[in-house]
Write a protein that binds this DNA or RNA. Structure first.
Lengths: 240, 240
DNA sequence: TCAAAAGTGTTGACTTTACACCCATGA
DNA sequence: TCATGGGTGTAAAGTCAACACTTTTGA
């Protein structure tokens, strides 16, 4: 932002650089959910003729008076009705021809939601959960964005207690382990998994039992801390 | 990018959303160097009256016909004369009031350069290397950007062989260890450090010795692989 | 001969992995 | 009574941290 050599005021900058205000900026959200033992992604039918019949991530242009996180939360709220979700910026994609309408740079966020706790009143317009394994050939560069976010989650899921955002409030260790397995794509040893989780001190024993399972019920737990909207903001600011 | 419900062409999109092309986008580069056993950052005197006498990162608006990486390389080339450096995107900052000239969203990159290999013909305009420990009160939100990039480097420096971009082609293990120490801010045990480096298989023994040191000379090494411009691009694309 | 750093292995602590049996429940 | 998963511990392997002495060179 500091290319010119003579000293200028902010006001003169605004005028002299008006040429550059020809790039649009959007956010795209990779919204992860978990249901029927599978990781799911929320996708919408592309509304661009160029990509008709292709699915795409949920996104929108950033409005001049909202910041990037606000835009992401707005999209999540509009689409899922949720406004207290975990959201994290991952990467910004700015290739020249990534969008057929013109120059659009997009900031990718991933989001983790409890798929059964939200009521998509919105199944009428073409918004659906897709199994990760079924997804291919998304619109725009959304496959690349999805892969980048997936990789980020895999890196973070053992480091930070974010995974609980995908589960209902009460869950068994089996459910938690199955979720880890579907994110990481590996099988985990049950005893070692439980040992590791209890060392991390992320969950609280609720002294309740599963019901409606066709086998011996397991104990129910809840997350000790939930990383959500407000906490995520605090984390970033504390780097100052 | 998919908010409207009726099907549109790319062309109609471009027109109907023209309101949104009022946000400018920039890149800011946190350029790290290493000299005299200290980590250094390349800063320039801010050219905005609002921030007169404050230092800022090197950055510029992204041009409509260049992608984000191209813009970052352009800045590096203009300022340092180097065009084969390591560069990595870190985070995008978009707060409403981060820039006094108006709405500017900036994509932060960090870069690692060999401070002694480049000839800053440019010391005339106010461009200088600053010791990390001396930096305070930068222009804009550049302190936050710097801290975010520093944290990213600290996470990556034991994971990927990027650190060699800060050193001359030939270096001793003592120099490498001192560099790690100044990045991580800790002291490392010499024997354990050498063990770890040799396990990582990142360096090649050159069968040469240091000269001009006032003590027993050590062996010289070079990096086995250099992560640079082309490799960095390949890495990202391979995620598809 | 002194100062400064090079070079080099071992031990104990800790972490990670592999692995098997009995138990509680619902069908 | 059977099928399904719940719940639990130990031993071996691997990784990490702490630590000291002899050697080489230049001043």
């Amino acid at each position: 932002m500091d290319k010119l050599l003579n000293l200028k005021t902010a006001e003169s900058e605004k005028v002299s650089h008006s040429d550059y205000f020809r790039i649009a900026i959007s956010v795209d959200c990779v919204i992860f959910g978990y249901d029927k033992k599978e990781l799911k992604i929320l996708l919408i039918k592309s509304d661009l003729a160029e990509f008709s019949d292709l699915w795409s991530l949920l996104g929108d242009l950033v409005r001049p008076n909202e910041d990037l996180e606000t835009a992401s939360y707005r999209i999540l709220k509009e689409r899922t009705g949720l406004d207290d979700v975990y959201l994290e910026q991952v990467y910004t994609f700015g290739s020249l021809n990534r969008h057929p309408s013109g120059r659009v740079i997009t900031v990718a966020y991933y989001s983790l939601v409890d798929i059964n706790h939200l009521h998509l009143k919105l199944t009428h317009n073409e918004l659906h959960w897709h199994r990760l394994t079924d997804i291919k050939n998304l619109a725009f560069d959304h496959q690349l964005i999805l892969n980048t976010c997936l990789q980020r989650i895999r890196e973070q899921v053992m480091e930070k207690p974010v995974i609980f955002n995908l589960l209902p409030e009460k869950f068994s260790l089996r459910e938690l382990q199955e979720l880890y397995q579907s994110i990481l794509g590996v099988n985990l040893d049950r005893r070692n998994f439980r040992k590791k989780i209890s060392l991390k001190d992320w969950v609280v024993d609720l002294d309740e039992m599963e019901s409606d399972v066709p086998h011996r019920p397991g104990k129910l737990y809840k997350a000790k801390v939930q990383l959500r909207k407000k906490q995520a903001k605090k984390r970033l600011q504390s780097q100052l």
